[in-house]
Nucleic acid binder design. Structure first.
Lengths: 242, 242
DNA sequence: CGCCCTGTTGACCGCTCTCAAGCGGCGTGG
DNA sequence: CCACGCCGCTTGAGAGCGGTCAACAGGGCG
């Protein structure tokens, strides 16, 4: 299976800076060995069943890791943004499909070259290792949301996360690069429920939707409270505080 | 967060032998540096918020990685069996709690010692790396079940997985070492739904329950079909074939 | 024997899914 | 420039699965 390396960082716990493109450059990701390929929206990087020949580093755009069951149900495991690694799988063939959400570019490094470098460059190895464990950390949060939260909480979590990761972190306005179906498949919901929940959050005054792809976060405090899966948390009005 | 290394292996795809205790011994897991500690049922190995001082290797018994939200909702990320590693987290403090399901023993290796060994022993490093990516692979399957499957499918998947991992693999009879609440929290269900689904599977003749903790798998073929999230798959009667 | 803990069963409710219609933006072509 | 169609999104009505609350059963152990 394709492995999700450092997916979206949770916005809910104070985390050190995500392992970003600059960090990878800092440990001298061997671009000399890597081939950068551009992709059109929806285009497939690797498909389920393809041999695991390369590891990938997102250079530009957003990519998604998708698992589709034979009867067509779809689960998105992660969205990858520039600086994120993906494609690290233990098996000989991929179990996940990696696709471009929008136009983007990915650097491919052969598995062999990556492993060789890991063996001789402890710093590089540590960075990769950190990346993988971070992906696992995120999978835990993701799974807890999917397994134990309401639609409203899942979407609040997703938006808080996007906000924390978007350029100019904690931005009040975020751009949804993916469409509703992708959000639904990421959160384990249907597209209708996602749409209704957006409407509901808007009606509550937590967000505004200038366009369908643009979200203004009006009440990050309440959104974060929803996202933290803490129904007992006090409601603190950030307007009163700030 | 505590990181789940090599949790239960999916029974659904033909996978190479799980990374077992023997393999770790083969790469000379430095027992000299490790401290083995025994735990009583329910006892905590590390709790959320504890500093991430050690990596762990299960020696005996079954352990669970639990995440609990502040308002008490519980999600089990993985069950660890002998040979499984856990506790590999990128952050300074654990985000997951690791507890003993039953009486068991775990070897603790300091983070520092493990990283040091990874840096100087490529074989050891590759084994750990393989372990982590395998955990991610499993998380993908797990998340797909939790996000996209019915209660019946989730339980069928869980039982198929246990069957594949139990001593004498693909055994027709498996021992449930954990109680219903743990199964429910692993699958993102309630204890009542798990109980009802057991009853339902029994009524369909797929399983038998000699005791509440013992499951006889009568129709592994049908169970696997349910588990594969493939509602369109043909029903093949293994009794007719074998 | 009686308590406690775990698991089962039942009745009911509500969240989310399903199915279906409608809406709005955008690109294309007349 | 407008008409049309397509696609993504929203909204509505109804159904069903699983959650919630509650009672009960059974086994282990003091």
């Amino acid at each position: 299976m394709t492995i999700a390396i450092h997916p979206l960082e949770s916005a809910l716990r104070p985390a050190p800076d995500p392992f970003a493109f600059g960090d990878l450059a800092a440990v001298k990701f061997p671009y000399a060995d890597a081939v950068v390929v551009t992709y059109a929206p929806g285009q497939e990087v690797v498909g389920e069943g393809d041999p695991t020949e390369n590891y990938y580093l997102v250079v530009r755009g957003v990519f998604r890791a998708v698992k589709v069951t034979r009867d067509g149900r779809r689960q998105i495991f992660a969205f990858y943004m520039p600086g994120d690694m993906c494609g690290l799988e233990p098996e000989d063939t991929h179990g996940l499909t990696i696709e471009a959400v929008n136009a983007g570019a990915i650097a491919a490094l052969t598995r062999q070259a990556c492993r060789a470098r890991m063996a001789r460059d402890p710093q590089f190895n540590a960075a990769i290792f950190d990346n993988v464990t971070r992906a696992l950390t995120h999978a835990v949060d993701h799974m807890t949301m999917v397994g134990r939260s309401s639609a409203e909480e899942r979407l609040a979590w997703f938006l808080s996360m996007l906000s924390a990761r978007s350029p100019g972190r904690r931005s009040a306005s975020i751009e949804l690069t993916m469409q509703r179906q992708d959000i639904a498949d990421y959160l384990g919901l249907t597209i209708e429920t996602v749409s209704r929940t957006f409407t509901h959050l808007k009606a509550q005054g937590l967000i505004a939707l200038p366009t369908t792809r643009r979200i203004d976060i009006l009440r990050p405090d309440l959104l974060a409270r929803l996202a933290s899966a803490d129904r007992d948390a006090p409601i603190c009005d950030y307007r009163a505080v700030c």
